[in-house]
Structure formats: C-alpha cells, structure tokens
C-alpha cells in the first residue's frame, strides 16, 4: 500500500460498502422478477459507479467485490457467488475501460456496466451448467441491462454532481 489509510477513507469505505449492501437488499425485497433470470436493476451499481468517479478505481473495485462477498455470505450460496462475482468483475472492467477512454458520460458507463454484468453472468452460467442454450436469454438480458444501466447512470450522475457540490462548501 502506498500510504496509510486515513480515518476518513476508512469511514468512506465502510459507508459505501454498507450502502451498496443495503441497496442489494432493497432490490432483493422488491418482488420484481421476470421469466428470464438475471433481469434486475442492479441498484448497488450506483455506489460502484459513484466510487469509480469520485474515489478511484481501486476503491470502486474493493467496494464492488466486498459487497458481493458479504451479500453472498449472508444470503447466497457458493453458486450464487460465482454468478455474482463473474458479473461484478466483468462489469467493473468494462466500466473502468469506458471511463478511461473518456468518450462516454456516466450514462454510457452505466450501460456498459449493466450489459456486461449480464454477459458475465451468462458466460458463468454457460460454464457452470455446461449448456450453450442459455445464450437464448442474451437478447433480453442485453436490453434489460441497457435500461437498468441508463437508470443507474442517471442516478449516479446526479449523485456525483450533488456530492461534489456539497464538498466544495
């Protein structure tokens, strides 16, 4: 580690991971399920996108992975861990890439994150279940990932703007 974490940074991590976990849980509570597995909003991604912009890539990655691990330990099983992790890692990689090339706004980053999260989970399911047929869900999941991504991008964008303004005071 380059330098010691300050108390503020530790508090920030704790706050954001807790927030991401609460959002996952809220989403889990909303009885929103379609016939296709994997269609979801991904509320916790708001926190990851926010952290990516405001804190940095390492912080965002740590928050994303820790959230998945902690949620799985509490509510999931080993299989859920594989699905969640593959989605989270691919999603993070794509969002980081889109952010780095600096050609997309937070909405574009959100779309990339949402879509690649679903692709990651499908790839994982293909490997785990040993079937290619699951790719039939891909069109639905691409579109749902896009819609969710736009929503996440818009919300994260508002947050990035507001929280920044707050700090400048």
């Amino acid at each position: 580690m380059k330098k010691k974490m300050t108390g503020k940074q530790i508090a920030e991590y704790g706050l954001l991971i807790a927030l991401a976990m609460v959002l996952s849980y809220v989403e889990f509570l909303i009885p929103f399920s379609v016939a296709v597995p994997g269609v979801k909003l991904g509320l916790a991604n708001i926190v990851v996108v926010f952290a990516l912009y405001r804190l940095g890539k390492t912080e965002a990655f740590v928050i994303s992975i820790l959230r998945v691990l902690l949620m799985t330990f509490m509510f999931g099983n080993a299989f859920a861990l594989f699905y969640s992790l593959s989605g989270a890692v691919l999603s993070f990689a794509v969002m980081l890439l889109l952010l780095k090339i600096n050609r997309f706004s937070h909405i574009g980053v959100g779309i990339g994150g949402g879509v690649s999260h679903n692709i990651g989970q499908i790839l994982c399911a293909m490997v785990l279940l040993g079937t290619k047929q699951i790719a039939y869900y891909l069109p639905v999941l691409l579109v749902s990932g896009t819609i969710a991504g736009i929503a996440i991008g818009v919300i994260a964008g508002i947050l990035i703007k507001r929280v920044k303004a707050d700090k400048a005071k």
Binding site: R103, F104, S105, I111, L138, V140, V143, T146
Partner: peptide, 22 residues
C-alpha cells in the same frame, strides 16, 4: 455534447446486437 452522442451510439449498438441475436 459529444459524450451524450457516444452514449446514444453505445445504446443503439447494444440494442441492434440484441435484435440480431434474437
């Protein structure tokens, strides 16, 4: 805004790919 335009291109690309696969 340039970024907005790129966002839209990305969006259109994903939807087109989804439609093609479907």
């Amino acid at each position: 805004m340039k970024k907005r335009k790129n966002d839209f291109i990305l969006l259109a690309a994903v939807v087109i790919v989804a439609a093609l696969i479907w």
